[in-house]
Nucleic acid binder design. Structure first.
Lengths: 185, 185
DNA sequence: CGCCTTCCATACGCCACCGTATGTTCCATC
DNA sequence: GATGGAACATACGGTGGCGTATGGAAGGCG
């Protein structure tokens, strides 16, 4: 019995809890129960709850964004990358639960700090893609913000009110790609 | 002293708390403290916490959506209404805090029930507006979903990562209107 | 084998919020 | 001006999570 746990075991379990129950579910005692351990283990690896939360968010920061970007970079430059990104991101209904939990968390300073970094990284990358298809700098930036907002809202809807989303995914994706990649003015 | 409180006083205070601290902040004892009363009052007007939450959400349902729609209906049919809606909704940084709290609330059944109703109402109305400017039924519906998602995401960003939003609001609004009202294909 | 560090369990006090039970005040009404 | 109900206050027990203190097992290492 009593398999020893690592910091990584804790943050992994915390990520699951985060996706399922939000920031509030990243709580030491319930996690300990799920891991078949007690608080003693948690307070050995982490100073307190906030330290566990911070470690969990930093792990999420690493894993969430870069994997998607790597995947997109496999495509040739230009429209193909934007399309690949939209498709990848409109799919995977359960893949984006963690960020939803973060974005609406009652202003914990640890959360807002990391959310800001991740948001800027993603929008910046998106703006780069728009630059590749001929958008000027400010236009690319504005369109990137719009596209990222659409992504977030879409994930929100998929979670909170999936009934209102289109059932036929194919034409929806096409429309989104079409509307969001058309050049301005 | 000791001004008597009504159900409406409680739901009003709960709405404020909801916007500020999320669903979790709709808690009886803190609200009682803010109202200068005690739990006795709350448990007189409401059976329990969930009843207070439900009453609060139903009030929000009434007040949030219809006021915006009335405002938009003052415009002439067609593009003017969509533009008015987008402008109204991209403004008012603090006006949409309650829904953000709701959309990412850890699956309380009361919340999801009402969020579903509100979402369907709004997307349905939006689809109607797109119909007025010549979109076919399915196209209007898909574009409405996209536009509503963009709205939600935008509100999210404004709250969680305002630094990443465009500083110059005017061209941003123009780009959004342009991208989201162009006819498909 | 014995020892020391690492990792964890147990047990405790604390706080915030829930819900209930019962006492208390205000006001209308006869 | 006594009485009954409406609208509270007060006091209590219960729950769930935080953080601390201290004791104990388990493995490397001499």
């Amino acid at each position: 019995m009593a398999v020893r746990l690592t910091r990584s075991d804790w943050t992994a379990a915390a990520l699951v809890a985060l996706a399922e129950g939000g920031v509030g579910a990243v709580a030491i005692e319930p996690l300990a129960a799920r891991l078949g351990a007690t608080k003693g283990s948690a307070y050995w690896h982490f100073a307190n709850r906030e330290a566990l939360l911070r470690a969990t968010l930093e792990r999420w920061e690493q894993e969430s964004t870069e994997s998607v970007i790597r995947q997109v970079e496999a495509q040739p430059e230009g429209h193909a990358r934007l399309r690949a990104l939209f498709e990848s991101v409109l799919d995977h209904p359960t893949a984006h639960l963690a960020e939803l939990a973060l974005l609406s968390a009652p202003a914990e300073p640890v959360v807002t700090e990391i959310v800001n970094r991740v948001t800027e990284r993603r929008i910046g990358y998106l703006a780069g893609l728009y630059g590749q298809i001929g958008f000027g700098r400010p236009e690319a930036r504005r369109r990137a913000v719009l596209a990222y907002a659409a992504y977030l809202g879409n994930a929100q809807l998929r979670r909170a009110a999936p009934k209102s989303l289109p059932t036929a995914r194919r034409p929806y994706v096409e429309d989104v790609v079409h509307a969001l990649t058309r050049p301005p003015r």
